Simulated scan of single mutants.
Amino acid sequence: MHARMTLLAAGRSSSLADVRFGENRSLDAAGWEEVVRQVPAFSSLAAAELRYCSPSPRCRETGAVLGLTPLAQPALLDWHMGRWRGATLGEVATREPEAVHQWLTDPCSAPHGGESLLAFIRRIGGWLDTRPVGAGEWAVAVTEPSVLRAALCYALKAPPHAYWQIETHPLATVALTGKAGEWHLDLS
Rank of each mutant, 00 (worst) to 15 (best):
A3G: 15
R4Y: 09
R4K: 15
M5C: 09
A10N: 07
A10I: 00
R12Q: 11
R12T: 01
S14G: 06
E23V: 05
E23N: 10
S26A: 14
S26W: 09
A29D: 14
A29K: 11
A30P: 04
V36N: 12
V36K: 13
Q38M: 13
V39E: 13
V39D: 03
A41H: 13
A41L: 10
S44H: 14
C53N: 05
C53V: 03
P57T: 04
R58I: 04
R58Y: 05
C59G: 07
C59N: 08
R60S: 10
E61T: 03
E61Q: 11
E61A: 00
E61S: 02
G63H: 03
V65C: 06
L66C: 03
G67Y: 01
A72C: 01
A72I: 00
P74F: 01
P74D: 10
D78I: 01
W79A: 05
H80K: 10
G82N: 03
G82T: 06
W84A: 07
G86K: 08
T88K: 11
L89V: 13
G90E: 15
E91L: 12
E91Y: 11
V92S: 05
A93E: 14
P97Y: 09
P97W: 06
P97Q: 10
E98T: 11
A99H: 11
A99F: 04
V100K: 06
Q102H: 14
W103C: 07
T105V: 11
T105Y: 09
D106C: 13
A110R: 10
P111N: 12
H112W: 12
H112D: 15
G113L: 13
G113F: 13
G114L: 07
L118A: 15
W127L: 02
L128M: 14
T130D: 11
P132Y: 07
P132K: 06
V133Q: 03
V133N: 02
G136Q: 11
A139M: 06
T143G: 00
T143K: 02
P145N: 08
P145K: 04
V147L: 04
R149H: 07
A151D: 03
Y154Q: 01
Y154C: 00
Y154K: 01
A155G: 05
L156M: 12
A158H: 08
P160V: 06
H161V: 14
A162L: 10
Y163Q: 06
Y163I: 06
I166D: 04
E167Q: 15
T168H: 01
T168G: 04
H169F: 13
P170N: 06
P170G: 02
L171A: 06
L176G: 08
L176P: 07
L176M: 09
A180V: 09
A180M: 09
H184F: 13
L185C: 11
L185R: 13
L187R: 15
L187C: 15
S188P: 15
